[in-house]
Simulated assay, not measured.
Amino acid sequence: MKAESLRGARLTAEGIEGAVLAQTLLVPDDHHRALLLKGRILSKADWPVVASARVDELHVVRMEQGDVHEDEAARRLAKVVAGPGVIVHGPAESQVRLSAEVNGIFKVDVQRLNALNSIQDVSIFTLFDGQLVSKGKTIAGVKVTPFVVPEARLREAERVAAGGEGVVRVLAFQPLRVAVLVRERLDPAQREKFQASIEMKVAWFGSSISEIRYVADDIGAVEAAVDALLRDADLLLTAGANATDPLDPTLVALDRLGARMEKQGAPAHPGSAVWLAYLTDKPIFGVAACGMFSRATVLDLILPRLFTGSRVTADDFNRLGHGGLLSKDMAFRFPAYGAFDTLDQ
């Protein structure tokens, strides 16, 4: 590209043809109102507006062979950055906006994102990896810094972004049938509160509860209940087991059924005394009953992952340690049970 300053006899309709405007032109008597925005590719038809700005000197950029305008560059980058569950908008003011196509978990390939932003002129910015997002929520922006970039530089960025499932994507929540097994001795008032809480949480993810069953502290009763509940459920939530007691009836019953313990305990607080097992391919997630009432425990970090239909592993639990001190400052990581926030703030 080549920068030019147009003035005098060169500041004409012919002189601006094909040039990229490098400055925003304002209404002469009202500098809060724009006539033409910087980055615009000018044509002779723009001359009356340019003339009305009454400027003595106009800064423009001339595109040369092998140059790509910022709007086209942003469109091309966004095409390879956006993965499943992502909608591309724009560009507006030379920036492409990416939004969530569905309610789900926002995922970022941070390594490739960093590699892209290390390329001169490329600028891609996102929400945090793992954040819950609602349909329509802005999740990322894509742009290049100058008005014009070399084609070779853009191709390098496209090569880095290509492959896989995009640099950013949204894992959609899947409608699951959820069963709940409780060994806690809850009185009628506590049961009512417990059931309302868990039903609200499950419904928030677009799923439904197939059954809530209360059982005695008996290995045989727990074994029979687990076997029966999982016949009609995709996910089993259990409450009341002591994850640190090897002889706990729930843990013994699961062992008898051939379940495999994926992880016991989580490096986070509150809610560290959780566990996850699998019986065939169906997850069984154990928490304390009090965890069902709270809106900010490990339960509420793991549930969204389970509702995407992804297989949650011990490594997913291990990664909770970074940011595992669950204070008010971590509120953005938790489901906003009751309703999605669809506003961009």
Rank of each mutant, 00 (worst) to 15 (best):
R7V: 05
A239I: 03
V96F: 10
G141I: 04
S272E: 08
G258Q: 10
V160P: 00
D300P: 02
H32R: 14
L257H: 02
V149H: 03
I139P: 00
L25C: 09
K38V: 04
Q195D: 15
M63N: 04
A228T: 08
D67K: 09
P48V: 13
V287A: 01
E192A: 15
G104L: 02
P146T: 09
L326Y: 02
A45E: 15
G258F: 10
V252H: 02
H69S: 06
H31I: 12
G258A: 13
A266E: 01
N114K: 15
D227T: 07
S5A: 12
A82G: 07
F106R: 01
D281R: 13
I87C: 11
R191S: 07
V252S: 01
V142A: 08
V142Y: 04
N117Y: 12
I87T: 09
S208I: 03
V298G: 00
H59P: 02
A221G: 04
N103F: 05
V168N: 01
V49Y: 08
Q190V: 10
G324L: 13
L116H: 04
V149M: 07
P84D: 03
S294T: 08
E70L: 14
A289K: 01
D344Y: 14
K44N: 08
P304T: 07
W204S: 00
E211N: 11
A288V: 04
D129Y: 10
Q23E: 15
I41M: 09
A203I: 06
I87E: 11
I212E: 04
A13V: 12
D232W: 12
R231F: 06
K79S: 14
F340D: 04
N103Q: 10
V160T: 05
Q23S: 10
P146D: 09
I212G: 03
R159G: 05
M261R: 11
E17T: 08
A336R: 15
V149E: 03
I219H: 02
R319I: 08
S134W: 02
G104V: 03
A22R: 12
A203Q: 15
M63P: 08
M292Q: 06
Q131K: 09
D245T: 03
V178W: 02
E223D: 11
G163M: 09
S208E: 13
D329R: 15
G291E: 06
H59Q: 14
D129A: 12
V182M: 03
N103A: 08
R183F: 05
L343N: 12
E64H: 10
F173L: 07
P270I: 06
A277F: 00
G258T: 11
S208H: 12
